[in-house]
Amino acid sequence: MVTAVTSLGRSGLYDWLMQRVTAVILLAYFLFIGAVVISGPGYAEWSALFSQTWVRVFSMLALLSLGAHAWVGLWAVFTDYFTERMMGSAGNVIRLVAQFVTGIIMFTYTVWGIQILWGL
């Protein structure tokens, strides 16, 4: 058993399942938004659409899914390339900084998304 404290759920299976479930949610959301965009809505239509609770919930779900999906994916990328093995002890520092920055960006987008969606 290899230990890894920075992965999303500490468990490979959990991360793997999370990435697949969130991918399905994101696919459904982007198909939905894509269909809306193709129908060419104006401001009034957009506003009416996003005033409905289910659209806000769906958007929030997609936003959280994007955060989890991005964390699992970028965590895999960072632990592939920014490692002690590849670049000496600097690798660990670069990786932790990259993960920290990724975390801050995801957190900011999530809070900002809540603000936009629910107009707080």
């Binding site: 058993m1 290899v2 890894a4 992965s7 500490r10 468990s11 490979g12």
Partner: peptide, 14 residues
Amino acid sequence: LAKLDDPFSVFRCH
């Protein structure tokens, strides 16, 4: 199986 459920051993396979 208990030894394989970490993010590296099996799940590094893409």
